[in-house]
């Protein structure tokens, strides 16, 4: 039922740090977060870890376990053998605050840059009418618990700090898709997705989809459809003609 498990846990801050070895009791049915808590209570009271619900609903305890981005609270110890050494490290894409806690403020900045839901002006309280099948597309994306594992794993920024400024990451490209698919939203963010949020950087390797604990099909259902909309807009003959006329018109003024 119970055994001694071997763990390596990264400890340190933004200036230095490294893996520390621990031997900890592991009981039946436990998840990795239970082990981290046991470490805090018995061996390392100041071991920093971010967590809230311990039920896979809040997306706070994101970290990397044996190099894989995962939620600590949803990774059961039974997926490892008793002999295995389990390595727990902080998310690699974001700056370390301390131990397993990283500074995820990048995500909150990007969230602010997406133009918000823009409601129709002619509808009052209780007058919204939407079909279930029409809301379902956006509802899938609203399952997102903002664990930022998709942001962490995305190769565009994982090892490329320089791309962070021009790339919002799968989470917020999906947020754009969600708003674009909202049946009553009146804003158009298609162009922004490409120009301001870096949709073009995504080359649909589906790494984000693979790590999503909510099993949202980020690439297939959000990112690819957005890419298609951008392409439609760019190559739509009427839009193209409009652009040409507009350009010619403005050119003539000179």
């Amino acid at each position: 039922m119970s055994y001694k498990g071997n763990f390596k846990v990264w400890r340190g801050d933004d200036t230095s740090g490294g893996l520390e070895d621990f031997v900890v009791e592991v009981n039946e049915g436990e998840v990795v977060l239970d082990i981290i808590h046991r470490l805090q209570a018995t061996q390392a009271p100041d071991l920093a870890v971010r967590w809230n619900c311990k039920a896979g609903k809040c997306g706070s305890c994101s970290a990397e376990i044996n190099g894989m981005p995962r939620l600590l609270c949803m990774t059961r110890m039974s997926v490892f053998t008793e002999q295995e050494t389990i390595t727990v490290t902080p998310l690699r894409t974001f700056p370390v605050v301390r131990d397993l806690v990283t500074d995820v403020s990048y995500n909150y900045q990007k969230a602010r840059e997406v133009p918000s839901f823009t409601p129709p002006e002619n509808l009052g309280l209780g007058e919204y009418r939407m079909k279930q099948r029409d809301v379902e597309r956006s509802q899938e994306f609203r399952k997102c618990i903002e664990c930022f594992l998709c942001q962490n794993t995305c190769h565009v920024i994982r090892d490329h700090e320089e791309n962070k400024e021009s790339f919002s990451g799968p989470r917020f490209l999906m947020r754009i898709a969600e708003l674009e698919m909202h049946p009553l939203d009146t804003e158009d963010r298609t162009r922004d997705a490409q120009d301001e949020h870096g949709l073009g950087y995504c080359n649909i390797t589906k790494c984000c989809t693979e790590v999503c604990p909510e099993h949202i099909k980020i690439t297939d259902n959000a990112l690819i459809p957005m890419k298609e909309r951008v392409a439609d807009r760019k190559y739509d003959p009427i839009v193209w003609l409009g652009n040409q006329l507009f350009r010619r018109g403005s050119h003539n003024k000179h």
Partner: peptide, 13 residues
């Protein structure tokens, strides 16, 4: 709903 919430719908929307 005016903030953007998407609740599940009845048949008549």
């Amino acid at each position: 709903e005016t903030y953007g919430a998407l609740f599940d719908r009845t048949k008549d929307g």
